[in-house]
Amino acid sequence: MAGENPMEQFAVRPLIEAPLFELGGHPIYFTNQALLMVLVTLLSASFLTLVVKPGRLVPTRSQSVAEISYKFVSDMIHSTTGSDGLRFFPFVFTLFIFVLCCNFFGMIPGGFTVTSQIAVTFALAGLVMLTVIFVGFAKHGIGFLKLFVPHAPWYLLILLIPIEFISFMTRPISLSVRLFANMLAGHTMLAVFAGFVVSLGAAGGLLSGLAIAPLALMVGIFMLELLVAFLQAYVFAVLTCIYLNEALHLHDQH
């Protein structure tokens, strides 16, 4: 096992001892996380590009996977924001694929879960929020601030406007913490149960036999974590769509 501390799996370690270069006074290392992100990017980008052959009308299995993921995201955007949200397809598709692949690559034992880092999830959520704010002001100008003014009597607005404002401002936090915490909790739980298996197995005698119980539990939790890995990528993408919809259409229905 990697160690007794179940949190050790989340440590970002340089794979190359020396920093590659300095950026604004901060040393940049090639870390285990960087390796995973590079792998995710290379594999998903080349997969989605190479399995699809233009003109191949009857898809192969892998081409079907690429097409299904494409249609999944485009349908998601279409149903949440309407057809004018399809301009943001590349952005949402990239977010979905990136988060999904990071989550799934994290399920490989001995690997590293990129999305279990708050820095990464918060940066992604911040990117989403900046996009939303940029799109909102670009589309509605100063009228985008009407987002904070729901349809309500004026005396309620005194209360509602701060609430709306706070809820908007906490979105990047909720968006990032949701993904980060889910990944962190799942992997911590797996590591804790793995620790049980090891310590019970090492205890010898009857206790060694008991090690089968946490092992079985681990298998179940692993299945659940696979579901969570997909679900959190989906939730991240769908919330991005919903926020973009608000930026595009304010409180109106699309």
Binding site: V12, I28, F30, T31, A34, M37, A119
Partner: peptide
């Protein structure tokens, strides 16, 4: 670790 994380992200 944040600078490296953000850079590679």
């Amino acid at each position: 670790t944040f600078p490296s994380q953000i850079f590679w992200l």
